[in-house]
């Protein structure tokens, strides 16, 4: 059971335990996506408000499920862990602001390219999440580079609401992968005999 790859997975799952509880984050992402859809005038505002109670209940139920099924872990006392997840968002916000301030309209989406770059860099650096990050990063990059708004632009993915929606969709894929990784590492197994006790 404890080969090198298994120990590496144990380390990763223990260090990032709370981030891998994907079912708890999905309702939050769903609500942000609804809010962005409302901001784009695709749905009515009442739907965003009406979704709060069931989504909040789903998030709480997921947290309780994880606690009962997998136990609890207090994260390591380091501040650098959270920053890893903030950098892509921060970089995209800065890129979006820079493009907006400069008044540039390009046929490609700078925001999408920054997000996909972060996802692809993550795929190289964070091996346990590589499949999910590739699944997110490659389509983002392809869509960002296709001039969907015509040769003069602007690219639809450069609209704030749309790139936030794309970010939510990508994060949802990552959360589901995290959940599956957690399940795989902490799956119920037939009770092992104690050796060396």
């Amino acid at each position: 059971m404890t080969d090198h790859a298994e120990l590496a997975r144990i380390r990763f799952v223990t260090t990032h335990f709370e981030y891998l509880q994907g079912l708890a984050a999905l309702p939050v992402l769903a609500w942000i996506a609804l809010a962005m859809a409302w901001a784009s005038d695709w749905i009515g505002g009442w739907l965003v408000l009406a979704a709060i109670p069931p989504l909040a209940a789903a998030a709480v139920a997921a947290i309780v499920h994880y606690r009962r099924a997998y136990g609890q872990v207090r994260p390591p006392r380091t501040g650098t862990r959270d920053a890893v997840f903030l950098w892509p968002v921060l970089a995209t916000v800065v890129a979006a602001a820079a493009v907006d301030i400069a008044g540039l309209t390009w046929p490609v989406s700078v925001e999408g390219i920054v997000l996909s770059g972060a996802a692809l860099a993550g795929a190289v650096l964070v091996r346990p999440l590589t499949p999910a990050l590739l699944l997110v990063g490659v389509p983002w990059l392809v869509v960002s580079l296709i001039p969907l708004g015509g040769s003069a632009g602007p690219h639809p993915l450069s609209t704030t609401e749309v790139w936030i929606l794309a970010f939510c969709a990508g994060s949802a894929v990552l959360q589901v992968w995290g959940h599956l990784l957690l399940r795989r590492t902490l799956r119920p197994r037939p009770a092992r005999r104690a050796s060396g006790t």
Binding site: M1, T2, E6, L7, I10, R11, F12, V13, T14, T15, F17, A69, Y70, G71, Q72, V73, R74, P75, P76, R77, T185, L186, R187, P188, R189, P190, A191, R192, A194, S195, G196
Partner: peptide, 28 residues
Amino acid sequence: PARLAITTALNSCAEADFLFLQRLTGLS
């Protein structure tokens, strides 16, 4: 093996509860 898994996991966090370690190791 089980103790190596336990200590490796504990080295990656501040602390963990009994249930987490039980799920991690598959021990009774």
